[in-house]
């Protein structure tokens, strides 16, 4: 059971690396914000599997709910496409 959970955590973190690379290379900033929200959800799942529900709660609340809102307000001011 513990080995399975470790394997799942490793897979989630590897997928997080893929998402981070996509966020760095994309020219569409709205896409970057959406992918950052997805990465927040995955990191919250990792915290949950590590038996830290407190941290998972604040990760989802701040990473998906609040920082996405602030980023999108900023995108409305600076425009969507990166040069």
């Amino acid at each position: 059971m513990i080995a399975t959970i470790e394997l799942v955590i490793d897979l989630l973190l590897a997928f997080c690396v893929v998402l981070t690379a996509a966020i760095v290379f994309t020219k569409d900033l709205l896409l970057a914000v959406v992918l950052a929200g997805a990465e927040g959800v995955l990191v919250a799942t990792v915290f949950y599997l590590l038996l830290a529900p407190d941290i998972a709660l604040v990760q989802v609340a701040a990473g998906v709910g609040i920082s996405t809102a602030f980023f999108i307000v900023g995108l409305r001011k600076i425009g969507r496409r990166e040069e």
Binding site: P53, D54, L57, V58, A61, A62, G65, I66
Partner: peptide, 12 residues
């Protein structure tokens, strides 16, 4: 599980 900061973020 929970706490002040968690509850405050959810309220926001």
């Amino acid at each position: 599980p929970g706490g002040g900061f968690q509850g405050g973020s959810i309220m926001a």
